[in-house]
Amino acid sequence: MNPFTMLKYKSQLEGNHPKAAEFVKRVILTGLPEGTIVEVSITKPGEETKTTNVKVTREDIELFDEARKSKGK
Score class of each variant (00 low, 15 high):
Lys73Cys: 02
Pro18Asp: 07
Lys69Val: 00
Leu32Cys: 14
Ser11Cys: 00
Gly72Tyr: 10
Leu13Ser: 00
Arg58Phe: 01
Lys73Asn: 11
Gly31Gln: 02
Glu22Arg: 14
Ile42Lys: 12
Glu39Cys: 10
Lys19Asp: 15
Gln12Ala: 13
Ser41Cys: 15
Thr30Gly: 06
Val40Trp: 09
Thr43Trp: 02
Lys55Phe: 01
Asp65Gly: 05
Arg26Val: 06
Ala21Ser: 15
Ala21Ile: 09
Lys50Cys: 12
Glu66Gly: 02
Lys25Gln: 14
Thr36Val: 09
Gln12Lys: 02
Phe23Ala: 14
Glu66Asp: 04
Lys73Asp: 11
Leu63Asp: 00
Val24Gln: 10
Thr43Leu: 13
Glu14Met: 06
Asp65Val: 00
Lys55Ile: 01
Phe23Pro: 00
Lys19Ile: 03
Leu63Met: 08
Arg26His: 14
Thr5Ser: 07
Thr51Asn: 02
Leu29Cys: 12
Met6Arg: 13
Thr51His: 08
Val40His: 06
Leu7Tyr: 00
Glu34Ile: 11
Val54Met: 12
Gln12Asn: 13
Ile42Asn: 11
Ala21Arg: 09
Ala20Arg: 02
Gly72Asn: 12
Lys69Met: 00
Gly15Met: 03
Ser70Tyr: 02
Pro18Lys: 10
Ala21His: 14
Asn16His: 07
Ala21Val: 07
Lys69Pro: 00
Leu32Met: 15
Asp65Ser: 07
Lys44Gly: 03
Thr52Arg: 11
Glu22Phe: 07
Lys71Met: 13
Ile61Val: 05
Ala67Cys: 05
Asn16Gln: 11
